[in-house]
């Protein structure tokens, strides 16, 4: 069955030099989403990808709306479901970024302007500023009235902000061969082969992850580990 007036796949977005297809955008989204979820710190923002995908969702959904009365409902639902999946991935990706910003709010507010523009969008920065101001107001405001006016309350808290744990271990998969990676101060540089997997400190692969040359992959979950363990017992 064909869908004549519904153009939902492979839409070229604009006529400029870089043309993205929906499929390519989705692959990109999957990669950045996975890396974001597994990385201990905030990765560089991908505002363009997010914007383009939202535009695509808008197009698809308005097409579906128009086709509402003529189409076979089954196909409509399939497409709606697909749109919802993309919405889920996008929401989860953005939510994950917000969570990191919230947890390390003080740390991310201390970044220089250049670093900030690299890792977060203006909208995210606005949210972060507001969140931190509200939180300080909550903590300080709750006790301020009972304490002497010239007693600093949040001084120690602000001196030692919580930082992302860059030393935690991650599973990585290079997208291309990476040479001359230095793992420890005393070790010789190593190379990471394409199509293989490694367990490394995040700090060692931080740069290639940010450049999207290495993607993070999820380790075997503890639930499935348990399953393996139990099946070996019986």
């Amino acid at each position: 069955m064909d869908l004549p007036e519904m153009d939902v796949s492979g839409v070229a977005l604009d006529d400029s030099s870089t043309v993205y297809t929906t499929a390519q955008l989705l692959t990109d989204l999957k990669d950045i989403w996975r890396s974001e979820r597994l990385a201990p710190e905030l990765l560089p923002h991908k505002q363009e990808t997010v914007e383009m995908l939202l535009e695509q969702i808008g197009t698809v959904e308005s097409n579906l709306e128009k086709a509402k009365h003529v189409k076979d409902p089954f196909f409509l639902h399939c497409h709606k479901m697909e749109a919802n999946r993309v919405r889920y991935m996008l929401s989860n990706y953005l939510r994950c970024r917000l969570e990191k910003l919230e947890n390390y709010a003080l740390h991310y507010l201390q970044l220089s302007a250049a670093e900030r523009d690299f890792v977060m969008t203006t909208a995210e920065y606005k949210f972060l500023q507001r969140y931190q101001a509200d939180t300080e107001e909550l903590i300080e405001g709750s006790v301020r009235t009972f304490l002497p006016a010239n007693l600093a309350i949040l001084d120690k808290w602000k001196e030692a902000p919580l930082k992302p744990r860059l030393e935690s271990f991650v599973f990585v998969k290079p997208r291309e061969q990476i040479n001359g990676l230095i793992l420890g101060a005393s070790d010789a540089p190593v190379s990471l082969e394409q199509h293989s997997q490694y367990l490394l400190r995040y700090s060692a692969v931080r740069k290639p992850v940010m450049e999207n040359k290495v993607i993070l992959i999820s380790p075997i979950s503890s639930a499935s580990l348990q399953e393996i363990f139990l099946s070996s017992l019986f």
Binding site: L54, E61, S62, S91, L94
Partner: peptide, 20 residues
């Protein structure tokens, strides 16, 4: 006139496995 495409982050909290 079209409505903006709003992504309500609180709605999509579980992976959609089925439509209904």
């Amino acid at each position: 006139p079209q409505d903006p495409v709003v992504l309500d982050l609180t709605v999509h909290q579980r992976p959609p496995k089925e439509y209904f």
